[in-house]
Simulated assay, not measured.
Amino acid sequence: MSSATLLTTASAHLVTVLFACCYVGSIYVSQNARLSFKPAASQARQSRYERSRDDPDVIKARLVSVSIATFICCAGVFAMMWHSLGGNMEHPSSAFDITVAHLGFKLSPIYPLLVTPLLFLGPLYGRYLAEALPLQRYWTFKHDVVFFFLSIRGIRNYIMAPITEEVVFRACVLTVYQLSGASKTRMIFLSPISFGAAHIHHAWDTYNRYGRTRTAAQRAVIGTLFQFAYTSMFGFYCAYLFLRTGSIIPPIVSHVFCNVMGIPQPGVEMSQTPNRKYAIAVAYSLGILAFVGTLGPWTYVADSLYW
């Protein structure tokens, strides 16, 4: 199979847009997955017809929708692989095996999984000072594991969203660009654009949640621009992890870890423990240095299909 001639660059762009539309559009297909809002004048009163993105029924419906969308995107990659083999396979499993290999459905060495925690050395030290790490005073298995991960919101935020988003926006999208003969640099910096754009629809939720006013619109625009920038930068990193390792596991683990940790807030941590502010600054600096130093050697996997 000559992957470099299977798709044109324009076709690759179109397919990645279709994948993004399939994933995001899936949450609007089902009536149960759609949001509904009351007029701003009646915000003070709860209505059984109001449904936010954190409504349990909405979450359940959306989990089903994105799972189906993820399967469809993977099936699309399989169809391209099957077509590349002429649609007449000697062995029925040939296209399936090639698809699995391109999507990175394989185990990963341990080292690539440790790079992201190194970057968060500062926030981890901040949690240590707050005694919120495992087995410390303010950590409990019931709250920080059972409720945090196994509640309906936890399943969405820390299990299903990282898995489905990485499979679609990393594995499927990068496979498409690889089949078009795109360079590694272009794959790293082009593929996350669709991932960032897929979060733009949250602006509608923000606009409605805050009353559909001019202020609400400004808040939605600013928040969406920040989210687009943040998710795109994160996408660059996860694309690099996927290409270097040839496995979808490191991007998924990194996504889960970042969702758990949230955005680093050194100012808040220093204000909470002012006597340790210099130690916090050192921890953040060491984390960045360790991340830069290990990013290349720790993520290299010799048998990566992409690197």
Rank of each mutant, 00 (worst) to 15 (best):
D205Y: 04
F78M: 08
D97S: 06
M80W: 00
Y240F: 10
I98E: 14
G262Q: 06
R170Q: 08
Y207I: 03
A216T: 00
V260G: 09
P123I: 01
A198T: 03
F149T: 02
C21A: 15
T206S: 10
A4Q: 15
R156E: 07
T224W: 06
I193P: 00
S26I: 00
M187Q: 14
F147M: 15
N259K: 04
R170F: 07
T245M: 11
R212V: 05
T231P: 00
F228S: 01
S11R: 02
I68Y: 12
N259Y: 01
M80V: 04
L150N: 07
P39Y: 13
E50G: 03
T213A: 05
Y28A: 15
L241I: 04
R127I: 08
R45Y: 10
M1D: 15
D303A: 14
L305Q: 13
E50H: 05
L63T: 08
P266M: 02
T16Q: 11
F19L: 04
I98M: 11
L135D: 05
V15E: 10
S52N: 09
Q136P: 06
V221L: 13
D205S: 06
T273E: 11
T215C: 13
M1G: 15
H91G: 01
F291W: 08
D55A: 14
V282A: 13
A101N: 00
G287D: 02
D303V: 09
R153S: 14
D303T: 09
M81E: 12
Y278G: 06
N275M: 13
F228A: 00
H13K: 08
G235L: 04
P297I: 11
S3P: 11
A40S: 13
I280G: 04
G246R: 12
I27P: 07
T213P: 00
E90N: 09
I155P: 02
I72M: 10
G76T: 07
R127V: 04
Y158I: 03
D205F: 00
